[in-house]
Amino acid sequence: MPHTDTETRDLFDRTMREHARPDGPGVRVERVGPVVRQVGGTDDWNGVVWSAPGLDAAGADAAIAAQIEHCTALGLPDFEWKLYAHDSPADLGERLRAAGFVAEEPETLLVASAQLRAGPAELPEGLSLRPVTDAAGAELMARAHERAFGTDGRRLLHQVVKRLAEAPEDFVAVMAVDGDGEPVCSGRMELYPGTGFAGLWGGGTVAGWRGRGVYRALLAYRARIAAERGYRYLQADATAMSAPILRRLGFTELGTTTPYVYRPTR
């Protein structure tokens, strides 16, 4: 890894944000003035992933207004501005709120060596690993997500089915299932060719199986695949639930990121 956390963060900003790649089929990445955004359909993730480091107050307000106009014109149900704590200007979050964006729970940007985190996926007795390779598996994965996080899994289902059908080569999805085939945890990994980074997503475990190593096992499984394919870094935007686990597993905190979401009024 680079010698300092700041160097690692700079590398992440440059390769994963400024030069972001689409996170799936049917979406595109655009650089519009001082921001980089992803654009897709109503069931895809749409939002700003990067803003220029020297962005000033006037430029920020203009860029925010432009993204609201863009979102509204496309008829999107929501649009996210992914704000990192080190982005400028310092009051960008306040400016987003003033324009109608709503801040969701902040997440911690964590990074680790894929090689060091790779290892056997050791699950507690009664559970087994099941790779997700088709629509039926994606449905189970969405059910695990709903049970773990208490949120609607329909958008996740759409994205995973689409990814598996159209661009599976840089995507990994896996579940832990019990003896009845019921999913108790699921996790995804996006591989970003040419960046050295593999992004970890999901990983939520249903309440009855938490604290028993299920999350750690799915992490080891994905880390091994990333390392085998030549990726140096694992990256996660961790919730308050998963961040402590990842820190204990050797992940380094590079900062925080907060989703600011705009939902046009109809």
Rank of each mutant, 00 (worst) to 15 (best):
L200H: 07
R155H: 10
R212A: 05
F197Y: 06
A176D: 06
G181A: 10
A240Y: 05
L164N: 00
L218Y: 10
I225W: 06
Y231M: 12
Y233A: 13
T151H: 15
V172Y: 13
G179M: 10
F171L: 12
R155T: 11
A173M: 04
E190T: 09
A240W: 02
R229P: 02
G211F: 03
A165E: 15
R163F: 00
R229A: 10
A238T: 08
R212K: 14
P193G: 10
I225Y: 13
T195W: 06
A220W: 04
M241E: 13
A220R: 11
A217I: 04
P168R: 00
M175N: 06
G204A: 13
F197T: 01
V172S: 15
L218S: 04
R155Y: 09
T151I: 14
G194D: 03
R155M: 10
T151V: 14
V206R: 12
G204F: 01
V174Q: 07
W209K: 04
V214Q: 10
G194Y: 08
G153L: 06
D178A: 06
R210Q: 14
G213T: 07
F171D: 06
P168S: 11
A173Q: 02
L156G: 00
V172F: 12
T205G: 10
Y221W: 15
K162D: 13
V206C: 10
P244K: 14
Y233D: 03
F171C: 00
A226C: 12
D237K: 08
A227K: 03
L191R: 12
M189T: 12
R216M: 04
A220I: 05
R188I: 09
G196S: 11
Y215L: 05
D178Q: 02
A176Y: 01
E166T: 08
A176Q: 07
Y231E: 00
R210S: 02
R229V: 02
V174W: 06
L156E: 06
G196M: 12
T205W: 01
D237A: 14
G203A: 07
A173W: 03
L219S: 08
V160I: 15
F171H: 12
L218R: 05
F197P: 00
D178L: 10
G211I: 04
R155Q: 13
T151R: 15
G194F: 11
F171M: 12
G204M: 08
G204D: 08
S242G: 13
G194A: 03
G153I: 06
R155K: 13
D152T: 09
R154V: 04
G199N: 14
R216L: 09
W201Q: 07
R224E: 15
E190M: 13
V174A: 08
E228M: 11
A223S: 10
V161H: 04
P183V: 08
L219Q: 11
G181L: 11
G204T: 00
Q159N: 13
P244N: 13
A217R: 08
